[in-house]
């Protein structure tokens, strides 16, 4: 579904991604690990279409379509979802209005009429249950005053509502206590089907105890320098990143 070839990207004058190659197929779970500053979040931002980043070389296709040519909202409609490391607070915009606008924008893209109020509320109720999100949060402004755990749960709630084909979860485990981590991970697992895929970006093996990856990639200095099975994450947990840095000394 996703094919990334030799992707280079920069923000301001700094080149962060220096030739990423990655292929994700339906049903797969990929984990991307790497030390701080290796480009993990940049990769997620570039794939989701953050205009602050400039792609200088390479390509990315999503179900054969040129992903990089699409604005962020079209990427979303086509089935790409980014779970933010730092979910953005939007004071004054209620979660309900935000999600209604999101759901109906997608329906409009596919030529469908807006969802009725009753159906929408039913959908909200059903999807909230996936991550045990409190009803009260849904009536508040987007992420405003949410705790760290609530913000991350809210990301998975949105993912559940939008039913993406590919979800990129950027450090969804950061800032979570062990119970919140379990709820979030279980939410992701509940949403997993043979037709969708997930890219989990994380620092720690801990999350991968809950979300089992098929492939683990190590990102270092803007390149994927190693790819392996779940055992690679365990090895990293044991040995740290120094050996990767050593192996990739220029």
């Amino acid at each position: 579904m996703l094919k990334v070839s030799n992707l280079h990207a920069r923000i301001d004058d700094r080149e962060i991604l220096r030739g990423i190659n990655l292929e994700v197929r339906p049903g797969e779970v990929h984990a991307i690990m790497g030390p701080n500053g290796s480009g993990k979040s940049t990769l997620s931002m570039v794939l989701a279409g953050n205009p602050a980043y400039t792609v200088t070389e390479g390509s990315a296709t999503f179900y054969g379509k040129d992903l990089l040519a699409m604005p962020p909202e079209i990427r979303s409609h086509e089935g790409l979802f980014l779970g933010f490391q730092y979910p953005v607070e939007i004071p004054g915009v209620s979660m309900v209005n935000f999600m209604r606008a999101a759901v109906n924008a997608k329906r409009e893209y596919f030529g469908e009429p807006p969802m009725s109020a009753t159906d929408f509320l039913k959908l909200m109720r059903e999807k909230r249950a996936v991550v045990e999100l409190d009803n009260k949060l849904a009536s508040r402004s987007v992420n405003e005053g949410f705790s760290g755990g609530e913000k991350k749960r809210n990301e998975i709630f949105q993912m559940a509502v939008l039913e993406p084909r590919l979800s990129i979860l950027d450090e969804t485990d950061s800032g979570l206590d062990i119970d919140a981590l379990r709820i979030v991970a279980e939410g992701v697992n509940k949403l997993k089907t043979a037709n969708n895929a997930t890219i989990v970006i994380t620092h720690y093996q801990r999350l991968l105890d809950y979300i089992k990856p098929d492939l683990v990639h190590i990102l270092y200095k803007g390149r994927i320098v190693k790819t392996g099975g779940p055992e690679l994450a365990l090895e990293l947990e044991e040995r740290g990143y120094d050996w990767i840095k050593e192996e990739n000394k220029l």
Partner: peptide, 27 residues
């Protein structure tokens, strides 16, 4: 810019995202 991008990643067209943010600003 980050609020705009966040909203767009959820499928809101840029014009709609701007509209909602301006409304929210006056809320």
């Amino acid at each position: 810019a980050m609020q705009l991008f966040y909203m767009r990643t959820r499928g809101l067209p840029e014009a709609t995202a701007r509209l909602l943010l301006k409304q929210a600003f006056m809320a």
